[in-house]
C-alpha cells in the first residue's frame, strides 16, 4: 500500500472506533432494562479500548496501551460485572424508570452531537483532522453522558451516565496527539469510578432510602425536619 493509503486507513479506523464509542452512548439511551444498559456500557468500553489501542499504534505512543488495557479490563469486564452483583444483592428493580421518553432523549442526543460538531469544528481549525473529529465525537459522548444522568432517574443508571461521560473524556484525551499525563488521568478517573461503585455498594443506598431512586434525595433539598 502506498503511504497515502496507509494514512487514509489510520484516519478511517480512528474515526470508526470513535464513532463506535458514540454509538455505545446511543445504545445506552435506548435501553429499558438495567442489564441492557450494562451491556451497552461494556460495548462502549470495548470500543474505547479499541480506539485507544489504535491511537497508541498510529501515534506510536505506547503509554496509550495502558489506557486501552484499563478500559478493556476495568470498564469492559470488571465494572459491568460489579454492577450486576450490586443490582442482584441490593435487589434493585431491573427496569429503568425514564424521566424523559426514549424517543425524545434520542432526538436530544442527536441535537447534542450536532451541537458538539458546531462547537468544536470551527475552533480547532489548526489541529489535525483526526484530532478535530475525535474531539467533536468525544464532546458528544460527554454531553450524552450528562443527558443520561439527567433523564434516567435511578442512582445506578446515573453512575453509568457518569462513567460514559468519563469514557468521552478519555476519548478526547487519547485523540490529542502527545498529550502528557494521559495514563495518570485515566488512573485518577479509575479511582473515582471505583469509589462511586464502592459507595453504591457500601452505603447500600437502597437499604437507606428504600430505593436507589435519586428522587428520594430530592426530598432533602430544603431544611432538615
Amino acid at each position: 500500500m502506498s503511504p497515502s493509503l496507509l494514512g487514509q486507513l489510520d484516519y478511517s479506523a480512528a474515526h470508526l472506533f470513535s464513532a463506535m464509542v458514540l454509538l455505545g452512548s446511543f445504545a445506552m439511551i435506548y435501553q429499558r432494562r438495567m442489564v441492557g444498559m450494562f451491556n451497552a456500557f461494556a460495548f462502549q468500553a470495548f470500543a474505547l479500548a479499541a480506539a485507544a489501542a489504535w491511537q497508541a499504534y498510529i501515534q506510536e505512543a505506547h503509554h496509550l496501551y495502558v489506557t486501552a488495557a484499563m478500559a478493556l479490563l476495568l470498564k469492559g469486564l470488571l465494572i459491568p460485572f460489579a454492577l450486576r452483583v450490586i443490582v442482584r444483592r441490593l435487589d434493585i428493580h431491573r427496569s429503568i424508570e425514564v424521566v424523559i421518553g426514549i424517543g425524545v432523549t434520542m432526538l436530544v442526543g442527536i441535537g447534542l452531537v450536532a451541537l458538539s460538531a458546531l462547537l468544536v469544528m470551527p475552533v480547532t481549525a489548526g489541529a489535525a483532522a483526526t484530532t478535530r473529529e475525535d474531539l467533536a465525537l468525544a464532546l458528544s459522548v460527554v454531553l450524552i453522558g450528562l443527558l443520561i444522568m439527567i433523564s434516567r432517574r435511578n442512582a445506578v443508571t446515573q453512575v453509568i451516565g457518569f462513567m460514559s461521560m468519563e469514557n468521552g473524556l478519555i476519548l478526547a484525551v487519547i485523540g490529542v496527539a502527545g498529550m502528557p499525563l494521559v495514563v495518570e488521568m485515566s488512573v485518577a478517573f479509575a479511582v473515582l469510578v471505583a469509589f462511586i461503585i464502592f459507595g453504591l455498594f457500601f452505603f447500600r443506598i437502597r437499604e437507606r432510602f428504600d430505593s436507589l431512586d435519586v428522587h428520594y434525595l430530592e426530598t432533602f433539598r430544603g431544611e432538615r425536619r
Binding site: 468525544a138 450528562l146 457518569f162 461521560m165 468519563e166 473524556l169 478526547a172 484525551v173 490529542v176 488521568m185
Partner: peptide, 11 residues
C-alpha cells in the same frame, strides 16, 4: 460532573 467538565476544558 464538575471536575469531568473541567478536564475537558483542560484538554
Amino acid at each position: 460532573v464538575g471536575i469531568a467538565l473541567a478536564l475537558f476544558g483542560t484538554i
